[in-house]
Design a protein around this nucleic acid. Structure first.
Lengths: 119, 119
DNA sequence: AAATATACATAAGTTTCTTATATATAAAAG
DNA sequence: CTTTTATATATAAGAAACTTATGTATATTT
């Protein structure tokens, strides 16, 4: 007897490259967030359809910080470490750009995939 | 004096993973196409905003063929080689799946990025 | 006492691209 | 007539962005 739940689960995949945009948009909206909070928020908003893995999230946050788009404040809550991230000034500008690129991508994909509607 | 047109060009990027879906959708719609034709079609439909590079396209076609989703017919037109691709039966099924995953991705992204509209 | 939730992190490997290069024929431009 | 552009395919090297697995540590629930 096989128990293999994974076979019945949807991949719930992101298109690669969209993670940064998601992070930046959430920070734009919520002011500041910590990593674990971001994973919970995405899961909540998408009703469990998108799951951000830590292996993707933390390197992405570190890279965005290294690029100067995010700044971090470390706090201790309930004796546990939290790293709160927020957008820098250039991060806010970059967020606007990436969101419009995302919108363009979505428009293009809808034109390709659903030519009848032609948004 | 610098001539550096690339600096003024938009990245015209795809989110990684979307290329296969584009190929499969175009084949679903047009019956059969050859590689070069696909690059031209995408450029035309998106008014030059998306450009499929050969370095991405041909390996993608070969992989889809190896996975059994595409089959190929080689023809010689004007003394030049053409490889026409079309969806197999399992490729047609897979196309339906990938298109619904794309739609789900777009829905999720719109929920995340534009929570006020909540499609 | 063990499992789950919270909170971070990194290393190894895979997939999917970009960029560059290569071959070959036909047509257009200079 | 020679070079560039268009047509048509292909692959190799490297970069980017993930997945999967593992690790640490504390708090809460079972």
């Amino acid at each position: 007897m096989y128990i293999c739940e994974k076979d019945f689960m949807k991949s719930s995949q992101l298109y690669k490259g969209s993670l940064n945009t998601i992070i930046m948009k959430l920070l734009e909206e919520n002011g500041r967030m910590y990593g674990y909070e971001i994973t919970k928020k995405v899961k909540e908003i998408t009703k469990g359809e998108l799951k951000i893995t830590e292996g993707a999230l933390y390197p992405a946050l570190h890279k965005l910080e290294a690029e100067g788009f995010l700044e971090v404040e470390v706090e201790k809550v309930d004796n546990r470490l939290r790293k709160y991230y927020k957008l820098t000034e250039s991060g806010t500008t970059e967020t606007v750009n990436r969101l419009s690129e995302l919108e363009e991508f979505i428009r293009n994909m809808q034109t390709l995939v659903n030519p009848k509607l032609s948004y």
